[in-house]
Design a protein around this nucleic acid. Sequence first.
DNA 1: TGAAATCAATCAATCGTTTGATTAAAGTTG
DNA 2: CAACTTTAATCAAACGATTGATTGATTTCA
Lengths: 214, 214
Amino acid sequence: MTDTPLPAPEGTQAALIAAGLHLFGRNGFAATSTRDLAARAGANVASIAYHFGGKEGLRHACLKEVARRMRAVLSGADSIPGTPEAAARQLEGMLRALVFFLTTAKESADLVAFMLREIAEAGPGLADVYQDLIEPRHRAVCALWAAATGQDPESEDVRISVFAFIGQAIYFRIGRPIVERRLGWSEIGPAEAEKIADRLTLHLRAILAERPAP
Amino acid sequence: MTDTPLPAPEGTQAALIAAGLHLFGRNGFAATSTRDLAARAGANVASIAYHFGGKEGLRHACLKEVARRMRAVLSGADSIPGTPEAAARQLEGMLRALVFFLTTAKESADLVAFMLREIAEAGPGLADVYQDLIEPRHRAVCALWAAATGQDPESEDVRISVFAFIGQAIYFRIGRPIVERRLGWSEIGPAEAEKIADRLTLHLRAILAERPAP
DNA sequence: TGAAATCAATCAATCGTTTGATTAAAGTTG
DNA sequence: CAACTTTAATCAAACGATTGATTGATTTCA
């Protein structure tokens, strides 16, 4: 990348988006008032309508910001290794990174919370993020999965398996309060994320090694 | 309190709770107004305060209703089979039932949506449901899992595995719009639930069969 | 008749948004 | 360079609409 195709917001706009990611993600869209947003951003209430056209516009700007930051993180890792073993190892690395990103990533905590809530609420504008972010990534993981198992990359089985593969990691974030309680953890830190990642890696290996009976 | 331990609500109360499960689950707690609730229940707005003390009281009543209905569904199936193979088969049956319950169950659609949203929002009163519902069920599945794999029922590994086991199924509900889009499904009906359950059953078998290297 | 339940009407509070004034920097003109 | 205009941005204040809750009268039914 030479020049940034998607410029990072600055000043008041950036502060409002950061406030939106935090409050929308923590309390939900409807439960967050424009005054709360402005207070957290250190801005005036009117600046929301001025910069984004309204509260819904700020929500959309937050979505775009998530897509922008995610794209920067997820760039690369699109090459398919030659051997199934290498593909499997790459999947294991992605799983571990995903678990840590979802459960412990400090600077992206607001991003994750906002994105998961947006998915759960199925808010407008989710379609764009799906097209730009989710689908390409899912497709890439499917290719890896196919390379590791010898299946057809675009078969229904592979797509379902990849969703399950990602979904089990996501649950440890969505159901975090429940997981912490049941495991007796005060929080999910690096040590706990390690345990989760180790366990899920074992699951992944078992699934990848499994072959349907001839 | 009468002699029935948990009486089913009737009349206006039942209608309001049904409206709460539907609207809270579909749009979230904050985004649902008392007027919307009353309109859907065919009741007066004041009846919410009269019967439940307020909007928050209705939310709590909905939680209790979920617990009541869930308890009825999940009763039984607490016996641990003698052989690992039988335990594995029982886990497979539970997985299939869970997938169908989450994705296609018609009469419980509102229940599921409400419960998942309550978990995601981490609303008050969740602690009670955890104690009465989630923890005992999770513990029972852990016992089954341990019986199928020979592990310690209360070990951290088993608890994490069971969360992953349940979590992957839950994701097909939370991320349903995304799954439908990626799979090219117009909806997740019985046929699609079957495909998901089949695939997840294969995963489960592979994980249960896997044994750590000596 | 009397307690339980429902009703229309209304309450103060909060919501998202709009307004017009104010500031400061950039641009324009003689 | 000074004087004026233009523009983008921020601000306090207020707008109408909607929120959850409450009131007191009315209905229902035992």
